[in-house]
Design a protein around this nucleic acid. Structure first.
Lengths: 204, 204
DNA sequence: CAAGGAATATGACATTATGTCAATAATATA
DNA sequence: TATATTATTGACATAATGTCATATTCCTTG
């Protein structure tokens, strides 16, 4: 039972138009960057009328958000890695793995993330989207720190939310650094180094 | 000997025009934000002709960069605090003080930094300017870590530049968080917490 | 199966910005 | 005073956005 079988011919056409627009938009974004990309370029490439773009999307920002949705999904997956360490060493392993996966995304999805970074500065809709990913991570890390504190693994005197935020911030900035191709060092080395400082700073 | 005495009447007029534009621009930026601020609003407020703005500046971005220059200066001062600790405790004190001063800037200069943050995303000129501040700090921190490592205060096995970057990133992100008014906690508490994790993670 | 109705698509248009430039005004200099 | 230099000006060309009345395409119902 493919969903498409059920559809109207015109609904189908609509979906196809939308799809053509998304594909064209992706190309245009990658070629021009977020700022310089224009609706006109997209509709030309998609071979549809100008107004059509506004039928399907609210504007450039909206299109980018849709294009980013699967990348978003991958971030959420990483945020959900389970965390029940029995020792400092085990904690370090899990944390390292998580940081590594997170930073690896920068390499895997570099091109789209570059566009996304540009858009974060410009579009508040995109920026909100990213903020929600960030808060998801911070909440999660915060919970993990609490768990470690309750189980006598981590320093209890530290405000877990502040620590979580600080730790995530380091990760996030390295993510963008890598996205911009500004780091020589391997993702592995970066992950190892920042995890080492963090775990030794927090754990007993 | 005031510089002004030396000037032509017309050079003086030019300086005044420029000044009027800068003051008007600041108001407009603060009222409208970077995106929505327009040259037209500024020249109207400054009571000069449209083209005049382009005689004195290359555009919105350029005006903002000039407006930010004294804030920049304050950042550079903080980056230059001297660092020759004799013990882990002394190091922690200096580092805490530096982090505190840095984050305090977020409160003191909040309004202009808000505009600056918006502009970083949009204008590559502004973004470059910020990047140079960031690199200045990272270089400096990097040197400080090396010093501590050579003097047997810090863990030698860690790549000092990677650690420096990570530490600065935490600070920077908290800076923007505070600028956005998104933190309840006091600057003092934030500085204390992140410094505690960092110094324990890095120092012996 | 034909006619009317609903969903889609279209591009001309009004709007709003930007940056340029030839003309004009103000001031300096010879 | 006449001429050169510098500063200012606003009209214009350009470019992008988002809207909307109209056209097209397909579905439904009598």
């Amino acid at each position: 039972m493919m969903e498409k079988e059920v559809m109207d011919k015109r609904h189908l056409r609509s979906i196809k138009t939308r799809q053509k627009l998304l594909e064209a938009a992706k190309e245009v974004f990658l070629e021009e960057g977020f700022q310089k990309a224009t609706i006109s370029q997209m509709i030309k490439k998609a071979e549809v009328g100008y107004g059509t773009a506004y039928v399907h999307f609210e504007g450039k920002e909206d299109i980018l958000i849709v294009l980013m949705e699967d990348v978003m999904g991958k971030f959420y997956e990483i945020a959900e890695i389970s965390f029940y360490p029995k020792s400092k060493e085990e904690a370090e392993n899990i944390i390292h793995k998580q940081a590594y996966s997170f930073l690896k995304m920068a390499e895997t999805e570099r091109r789209m993330l570059q566009i996304f970074e540009q858009a974060i500065g410009i579009s508040s809709a995109v920026s909100e989207k990213w903020k929600s990913i960030r808060e998801k991570f911070i909440q999660r890390i915060s919970k993990d720190i609490s768990y470690a504190q309750e189980n006598g693994l981590a320093r209890k005197e530290l405000n877990h939310e502040l620590v979580a935020r600080g730790w995530f911030f380091t990760n996030e900035m390295y993510l963008w650094d890598i996205v911009r191709n500004e780091r020589q060092e391997s993702v592995e080395e970066i992950a190892k180094t920042i995890t080492a400082v963090y775990t030794r700073g927090l754990y007993l």
